[in-house]
Design a protein around this nucleic acid. Sequence first.
DNA 1: CCTGAATCGGGTACGTTGTACCCAGTAATA
DNA 2: TATTACTGGGTACAACGTACCCGATTCAGG
Lengths: 253, 253
Amino acid sequence: MATPQTGAGDPQRSLELLWREFEPQPSRPGPKPRLTVDRIVEAAIAVADREGSCFGMRGVSAELGVGAMTIYRYVPGKKELIDLMVDRISRFEGEEPDLAGLGWRERLELLAEGSWQAYDDHPWLLEINQRRPVFGPDSMAGYDFALSAFEGHDLPDREMNLVITAVMNLVTGTARQYLMRDSAEEAPEANEHEWWEVQAPYLDRAIESGRYRYVGRFKDEQAWNITAHQAMRYVLDRFLDGLAPRMEAARRG
Amino acid sequence: MATPQTGAGDPQRSLELLWREFEPQPSRPGPKPRLTVDRIVEAAIAVADREGSCFGMRGVSAELGVGAMTIYRYVPGKKELIDLMVDRISRFEGEEPDLAGLGWRERLELLAEGSWQAYDDHPWLLEINQRRPVFGPDSMAGYDFALSAFEGHDLPDREMNLVITAVMNLVTGTARQYLMRDSAEEAPEANEHEWWEVQAPYLDRAIESGRYRYVGRFKDEQAWNITAHQAMRYVLDRFLDGLAPRMEAARRG
DNA sequence: CCTGAATCGGGTACGTTGTACCCAGTAATA
DNA sequence: TATTACTGGGTACAACGTACCCGATTCAGG
């Protein structure tokens, strides 16, 4: 029941940690730190992957085998830690694929699919409430890649931003609707199928009441057979269809 | 720091309350209930509007002027209460406007704008994590209206669902990105302008590092001057542009 | 090598959350 | 009037984030 929020902590501290330089600290008195910020972030992600967004700081500490309060030596608080986790997730793993031959549409599709993959791997991302966009090195790299889609086109700067945030938000919106259901967590509430079985009698009675005109006309049993990814691709494809003529018009001769 | 979740409570209890009949209870011993479920839901919405999604059950009780635990006589828990609040919000206020002359596009736009309005009026809606779609009388009515957009068209049932969830999710995604920032709440983190002022030096340094190829090419200061509603309309318009040919093809007769 | 100072790790504790539980008061039935 | 079911309120508990303190550790300066 914890509601993590991004960009809600002290932004200055978050940014310092995000863009932290890896310069070796000058020799200082006192014991050497046993942990690093990176290890804490990795551990926190591992815990969140396992326990969902309601992961606790005590859990992260336990994962690292240290006392509950120890990680507070490295990170000012949970909010800032989440900022770090979010940026870390958006890091592109693996080597750069050959993007040379890709057009604007393939690149935007890649952006969407990559973002989708991140949500699929770390569903707890969907449950944290991003308050302000906290740009770190990794999310910045993602944004930079997104901009590459417009190379060779003269789309106005403002519209580029509109398109990129459109794609991101469209993926996030769909992911939230569909992917969040699987978060194990407390989960006494059975699976998808059982859920509709519980709801069905109420819906049936509502339909039979005649209060609604259009629901209840569905005859095709396949009407509800939609996977999360299919839903995302449908919005994305229609959006890109609609964007296509504008991109054509903006193509640089 | 509370993370409310929809569809996470006992679904059976939520549904019973959502579709509750208003038959007068048979005369029973004991004091008459001082509250009603409806009053509790309204009060909870009022509190959430004022305090954000991290509203507490004690706050709702206080709003109603009763003891902390009293509302648990009417509602099994916070999760179920949120289910009720969500459905209540999606109730259409005011009288039915004349929809007769509206085409499919206007109707889907109306759906989007209505949903947008709900998020604008109740930003805490964006912070609750909808686990499963809990259909109540009011959200069902909204879905029914959405289906009216396809009258006179032979779009497959499955695609109708894809379109409706697409529009909903696209609005939700954009609203989450933009509208959540204004939630007053703890808010020591200043306004939009100050936030970018804090972030700017880090971004500038990142750009100057040469690590990124495309960011930093933005010259137009207006590139970032995007309102929440403009962003939503942009996705919506492109999506509907892309949907248009398919609707044309499906037009009956 | 020894001393002082700065830092680290861990334990304790507080405030806030949702809510389980108990008890006293109330009103309809017999 | 006695019984009984139900109501409202207060207390209390577990889990959360985290403020605070203290002993242990390791550097710099003598």
